[in-house]
């Protein structure tokens, strides 16, 4: 028990030592990808909580991320910036004058998204299975339409520009680590067992005295909170946000990550996030024009998406469990692995 805690703390310290090194020595390009990795880790882990652990197939993260991004951005922009930016129609006055520093803005973004998630949960959890997916998909689309048309709040299709670039490695990885710790603690408790029970057999879970609506709501609101915070981090990383940024492709990317990693496994999610985020950087060449012998293939934007889609299909057919299945990494299992190897060597 004690040993494992020390090892966990040590590995977190190692992670931040690496980030410190990266921050000082690596180019802006790599730092950007590291930031992306952390934000996607937050998004994918919270998405896996509702999709993999609780088994509620929903497609809402792009909507929640948008809400978090807009909330945080509106809060950190200064009143003067907002006045200059809202040229179609002026911003509603109470939002115009609202101004906060970065950290409270992120927390408010998380809370606002969590409240939206809570309200959305009431209609959404009246339906199960495919219907749930369709309703949440509709929600993501609705958010996009709303952000396009509530011009006096979101500046419509023009989006928000000049958001201060507050996000750095410490913020993204700090939040990613906190997210993972909280979600893991939730999973390794009676609440987590109840979530898995709902996933395995909802009717039996009800018969065991589990208020399944409440359990689904806990999972949904928790993931909404972290997706909102991640949205805020994303807004302050790319400094310009508009409704087109939060399309279904974001959700699709996350879906690929959690399926590759294993639905219900946070370890798998972490591995798959790194693979997909870095993989899609490595695969950038497929979108460039290519010369093979005398042929020239023109660069097709979106080819990476095709590759990932094929990958998803292949995984669904041949390796439905993903990398980790539902298993989690634990120090005990690592030590066990070494022990059995030693025994085998003898």
């Amino acid at each position: 028990m004690k040993r494992n805690q020390i090892l966990t703390i040590l590995s977190i310290i190692l992670l931040f030592l690496f980030l410190w090194y990266a921050n000082n020595n690596l180019s802006a390009y790599y730092i950007r990808i590291l930031n992306n990795t952390a934000i996607f880790l937050m998004l994918a882990a919270s998405y896996n909580l509702i999709n993999g652990v609780t088994g509620q197939f929903s497609l809402e993260p792009n909507g929640f991320t948008a809400i978090g991004a807009y909330t945080a951005a509106i809060l950190t922009l200064t009143p003067a910036q907002k006045e200059a930016m809202f040229i179609i129609s002026p911003m509603v006055p109470w939002l115009q004058n609202l101004h906060m520093s970065f950290f409270p803005a992120l927390i408010v973004a998380g809370i606002v998204t969590a409240i939206v998630g809570f309200l959305l949960g009431f209609p959404v959890f009246r339906v199960r299975g495919d219907y749930l997916a369709i309703v949440t998909l509709g929600f993501g689309l609705t958010i996009r339409v709303v952000s396009n048309n509530t011009i006096s709040i979101t500046n419509g299709p023009l989006g928000l520009k000049g958001i201060e670039n507050y996000t750095n490695l410490w913020w993204t990885w700090g939040f990613a680590v906190v997210t993972l710790i909280i979600i893991m603690r939730l999973i390794n408790s009676e609440f987590g067992r109840a979530m898995k029970a709902v996933r395995d057999d909802e009717d039996a879970a009800i018969a065991m005295g589990i208020n399944t609506f409440k359990i689904k709501m806990i999972a949904f609101v928790t993931s909404a909170f972290f997706e909102g915070v991640a949205g805020g981090l994303l807004a302050h990383l790319i400094t310009t946000i508009s409704p087109t940024l939060f399309t279904f492709f974001l959700t699709f990317n996350l879906l690929i990550i959690i399926v590759i990693g294993g639905l219900g496994s946070m370890t798998g999610t972490a591995i798959a996030t790194i693979l997909v985020v870095w993989g899609s950087e490595i695969l950038r060449f497929v979108e460039q024009p290519m010369h093979i012998f005398n042929f020239t293939i023109p660069g097709i934007p979106g080819m990476r998406m095709v590759i990932f889609s094929i990958l998803l299909i292949v995984i669904m057919i041949f390796a439905r469990e993903g990398i980790m299945g539902q298993k989690e990494f634990s120090w005990d299992s690592l030590f066990k692995l070494f022990k059995t190897k030693k025994v085998a060597n003898k």
């Binding site: 408790s189 067992r193 029970a197 057999d201 039996a204 806990i218």
Partner: peptide
């Protein structure tokens, strides 16, 4: 109708859910 992906022990533990004595903050 067991929770097939949970261990035997975890299956039994879910039975205590409705008289759970800790909350989310404790967790």
């Amino acid at each position: 109708r067991l929770f097939t992906n949970l261990s035997v022990l975890e299956n039994v533990l879910t039975g205590f859910h409705h008289k759970l004595k800790y909350n989310l903050l404790d967790t």
